[in-house]
């Protein structure tokens, strides 16, 4: 598999635009990442948590507790589809998962919206109900399943693929601008997932930095002592050493 200085793992540079199987990634050895994969197996953002200010610490700690919370915005019948949809959008196919569905539920329940609504769209909160209903309708009409959550993963991916291209129609979808509905949902899903420290571990992000700040801006180093270099899942014996070929 590629070493990290090559960009061979990036979807745009690969045939079919798909990333390599996640097996090229190392298992996380320290801290937690979603699905325990990531590029920084020895990095845990919480190692530096004692340097965070109290207000930031409280916000992050609260976020870590959302998973245990009851749903308050989405009805029980909507929840399986919500969870399956969030999982597919983020390729969260195994535990541990960032509880994005619950985070979305909490955000909508608290009405923390983004400050704008497209003139041809309903309120974001209503859009979510419609999208979930629309996903179930497609699952029933095209795949003969009970709902979206009941579909095979491949079918779920296909449906979300159509949604991302704005290519769903009929039923509920006719009342929505489909591309904008996708953007409304993804904006919240991405904001929630990448606000979670497990995702920071996965991507090697330094996390909160007040009052400590960052000192290593380059060029001699871009890594603070608590930050760790990236790695891949290579067998060290078989790795080609540059210049020795």
């Amino acid at each position: 598999m590629p070493d990290l200085s090559s960009a061979g793992h990036l979807p745009n540079l690969r045939e079919g635009g798909l990333p390599p199987d996640k097996s090229w990634l190392p298992r996380q050895r320290r801290g937690t990442t979603p699905q325990m994969i990531g590029r920084y197996p020895d990095y845990d953002v919480f190692d530096a948590a004692d340097t965070w200010d109290a207000a930031t610490r409280a916000v992050v700690d609260k976020r870590m507790r959302v998973g245990g919370r009851e749903y308050t915005y989405f009805a029980p019948a909507e929840q399986p589809t919500l969870r399956a949809f969030c999982d597919i959008c983020l390729a969260q196919d195994a535990e541990p998962r960032v509880p994005v569905a619950q985070m979305v539920d909490q955000k909508l329940a608290e009405g923390r919206l983004d400050g704008y609504q497209y003139a041809d769209m309903p309120d974001d909160r209503e859009t979510w109900h419609l999208v979930l209903r629309g996903l179930d309708e497609i699952a029933m009409s095209r795949y003969g399943k009970r709902d979206f959550a009941d579909c095979e993963t491949s079918a779920q991916k296909a449906i979300v693929g159509f949604l991302s291209e704005g290519e769903l129609g009929g039923g509920t979808w006719d009342s929505l601008n489909v591309k904008r509905a996708w953007s409304v949902c993804m904006r919240i899903i991405l904001a929630e997932f990448y606000s979670h420290p497990w995702a920071w571990n996965e991507i090697g992000f330094g996390g909160p930095a007040y009052p400590r700040g960052f000192m290593r801006l380059g060029p001699t180093s871009v890594r603070e002592p608590f930050e760790k270099p990236g790695a891949t899942d290579e067998d060290p014996v078989r790795v080609d050493v540059p210049g020795q070929e």
Partner: peptide, 29 residues
């Protein structure tokens, strides 16, 4: 961009699911 901003950037180029996660893991580059 910080991670959420970077995710919006990756999404805008048409990536979601495993492709988006791959680009996100590459953030530091």
């Amino acid at each position: 961009p910080l991670p959420i901003g970077w995710a919006e950037h990756v999404l805008a180029d048409g990536h979601w699911g495993s492709a988006l996660r791959e680009y996100m893991r590459d953030y530091n580059h």
